[in-house]
Amino acid sequence: MNIHGLRLFYQVAKIGSFTKAAEIMRISQPAVSSQIKKFEHEIGIALFKQQGRRAVLTEFGESLATKAENLFSLENQIESYIDDYRKGEAGTIRIVATYLPANFLIPKWAATFKRENEKVNLVISTTNTKDAFEQLQHYKADIAIFGGGISERPEDIDWDELFEDELWFVVAPNHPYANQSVTLEEMVKEPFVMREEGSSMREHLFSLCHAHLLNPPKVALQFDGLSETISSVMAGYGANFISSLVAREYVERGQLARVYVEAVHIKHKIAICTRKEEKQSLLIKKFIETCKMKHI
């Protein structure tokens, strides 16, 4: 179908005059009439009929004009959407994050970003470290926001580190090790409550044991969520190895207690990750900049 012909027809139908439509489109009236006749010939259906000295729409012409209005209205919306996206004012950002940033950092970052970018959709999902990188690598996410160790960084991922967070061993306040100094060997003899395999905290702890030639602790309880692991430890069972961002408030309220493990000082990196050597859209750049500014 000749879209140019349809557009000319729609302009005439909307204005109700071949002459006025020609003036608006800055072409001659005979040219408009000729193009519309060609369009009628192409589709094989009359669009206008003579009524005295005037040409009026046929029943089909009226129906087609309504559909053309919908089409060109959608075209305008698409053009506006493309323009907004190009300017970084509209679109969708797919964010995948590990548990720590998803629950303790991203909500504030997202709220700040949305206040200034209402047309942008943020789709945020929470998963473990392994799956977060896989989603980014397989183009299921635009950004991965990660909390973990640099050894877990895939080679095809660009890593923009925001800050480091200290990792703590924690137990219930009535635990014998609460607020005490112990060796790592003593600590890992305790039963641990942890998240599933693939979570960064679990990998951190097991790597720490390996580096000190110790057997990893028994994971006596395993949960998919971090809050469940904290609740179990608070209830008086086992120990946890956790980010200070998560644990600090519980420790300050006396719901958890730190265990000071001798010669163990581990940092947890918070980073924004993107695919290496991929040019980022203005929209994604704006979101990353918001995260950086919000952190400062």
Score class of each variant (00 low, 15 high):
E228K: 14
D83I: 06
G91T: 09
R115K: 15
E118F: 01
C209F: 02
V96L: 04
A235C: 01
S232N: 11
Y237Q: 07
G236R: 05
I266N: 01
A31K: 10
S227H: 14
A102G: 09
I145H: 08
L136P: 05
S200F: 10
E116H: 14
L226G: 13
D224R: 15
L64Q: 00
N240Q: 14
I43Y: 07
S200R: 04
Q135F: 12
C291K: 05
K189V: 10
I150T: 15
L105H: 07
V120Q: 00
E289V: 01
R153F: 13
M234P: 02
K130C: 01
I150S: 12
D142V: 01
A235W: 01
G254N: 10
A22Q: 04
K267V: 02
T98N: 00
K114H: 10
W168P: 12
V56A: 07
E40C: 05
K269Y: 15
G61M: 08
K189L: 10
S200K: 07
A97S: 13
N76H: 12
L283E: 02
I95E: 06
D83V: 04
V233Q: 09
H204F: 15
E59N: 14
Y81Q: 06
G16N: 04
E249D: 14
W109L: 01
E190A: 06
P107A: 00
G149Q: 14
G225W: 04
E249Q: 15
V251H: 08
S34N: 12
K14E: 12
I93P: 00
L184A: 03
E89V: 11
I15D: 07
E262G: 05
H4N: 11
C291I: 04
R253P: 04
K37H: 12
L282W: 03
L71Q: 12
I45H: 11
L208P: 04
P30R: 00
A46S: 15
P176F: 07
I82W: 03
K20P: 00
T290D: 03
W109S: 01
T92S: 08
Y177C: 03
S244G: 13
E161M: 07
Y250P: 09
P217G: 09
Y10M: 09
I45N: 05
R258L: 08
I124K: 09
D165M: 11
V182F: 10
R275F: 00
A13Q: 05
R86D: 06
A97P: 02
D83Y: 08
K67A: 05
F39A: 10
E252M: 05
